[in-house]
């Protein structure tokens, strides 16, 4: 009973804040609601025995990506946009499409049955050597190549950002 109550709290807060994120007029308010959302998602990760990802969620998402968004919003002068309407002309169509999407996804996904071919990483196995060590072992052996490719993607992102945002000097 208690885990379900905890999950219900987190689910309600996550859905509520994500609705607030997409409806606020001021983008800074959106980003700050996003912060609340990320903290609750991190708590949900803790609930699922993924301590490393909870820490990463706070550090990378809340600490880096949201601060980047805030920097860009404050860099741009958005006075005029805040005066105008916040939704596009065709917003009823977009909401309708999203609602159809929600209904179908919930109808299908609420009935999924996962075939219980369980892997070796039970909660006891993870807790015996710690979540971080388990993730690290798999990441640096089995998933070494994707990990290296991720570093290349980050390098490309750095170079791309510098090239795109650099002011042209004539």
């Amino acid at each position: 009973m208690l885990p379900k109550l905890f999950f219900a709290y987190f689910a309600v807060v996550i859905v509520g804040t994500s609705i607030l994120v997409i409806t606020r007029k001021n983008p800074i308010h959106s980003v700050l609601w996003m912060l609340v959302l990320f903290v609750h998602i991190a708590a949900l990760y803790l609930f699922l025995n993924a301590e490393f990802l909870a820490a990463i969620q706070i550090i990378i998402y809340a600490g880096a990506i949201l601060v980047l968004f805030l920097f860009v919003i404050m860099l741009l002068n958005l006075k005029r946009e805040e005066m105008e309407k916040r939704f596009q002309k065709q917003w009823p169509l977009g909401v309708f499409a999203g609602m159809v999407f929600i209904v179908f996804l919930v109808l299908i996904l609420s009935q999924i049955v996962v075939f219980p071919q369980l892997g070796p990483y039970s909660i006891q196995a993870i807790q015996s050597e710690g979540n971080l060590m388990t993730v690290g072992k798999v990441l640096y052996t089995e998933y070494l190549l994707p990990f290296e490719i991720t570093s290349v993607i980050l390098l490309v992102a750095i170079i791309g950002a510098v090239v795109l945002a650099k002011r042209k000097v004539n």
Binding site: Q88, L93, G98
Partner: peptide, 15 residues
């Protein structure tokens, strides 16, 4: 799924 759909709605409707 619900959070994903809210993201889809936000992407489709916001200016």
């Amino acid at each position: 799924a619900v959070v994903f759909s809210i993201g889809v709605i936000g992407f489709l409707t916001r200016r």
